[in-house]
Amino acid sequence: MNPAVSNLVISIGAMQVARKLPLDDPQYLTYLRGGYVTAQVVSFLIYFAITLIIRKKNDLTVLKYVNPATPMNPDSKPELVTTTVRDYDLAETGKAMKSLFFGIAFMGFLHGYMKYTQPLFIQGLMTIKGVLESNPAKLHIWGSKPEGALSRPFKTAPGIMESLTGAAAGPQTDAATIKAAEKAGNKSE
Rank of each mutant, 00 (worst) to 15 (best):
A4G: 10
V5W: 01
S6P: 00
N7L: 12
L8W: 02
L8F: 07
L8R: 00
V9D: 00
I10W: 01
I10S: 00
G13T: 07
G13K: 02
M15K: 01
Q16H: 12
K20N: 06
L21N: 05
L23Q: 02
L23C: 01
D24V: 08
Q27S: 13
Y28R: 11
Y28E: 08
T30G: 11
L32H: 03
G35F: 10
V37M: 10
V37Q: 09
T38A: 15
A39C: 10
F44N: 01
F44E: 03
F44A: 15
F44Y: 14
I46R: 01
Y47W: 10
A49V: 09
I50S: 02
T51P: 00
L52W: 04
I53L: 12
K56W: 09
K57R: 14
D59M: 08
D59W: 02
T61M: 02
T61E: 11
V62C: 06
K64G: 06
Y65C: 08
Y65R: 07
Y65H: 14
P71N: 05
M72D: 13
P74F: 09
S76R: 05
S76W: 07
K77Q: 15
T82W: 05
V85T: 14
D87Q: 12
Y88M: 06
L90E: 04
E92H: 05
T93F: 01
G94F: 11
A96V: 03
M97G: 09
S99L: 11
G103R: 04
A105D: 00
A105I: 14
A105K: 08
A105G: 13
G108Q: 07
F109K: 05
K115Y: 04
T117I: 02
F121M: 05
G124P: 01
G124V: 05
T127L: 08
K129I: 05
V131L: 01
V131T: 15
E133T: 15
K138F: 03
L139K: 05
H140T: 06
G143C: 11
E147Q: 14
A149H: 09
L150H: 09
S151I: 04
A157D: 12
P158K: 02
G159D: 11
M161C: 03
T165W: 03
A167V: 03
A168W: 02
P171A: 15
T173Y: 03
A175R: 11
A176Q: 15
T177C: 01
A181F: 03
K183M: 09
K183L: 14
K183F: 03
K183T: 15
A184M: 07
E189A: 12
E189D: 12
E189K: 12
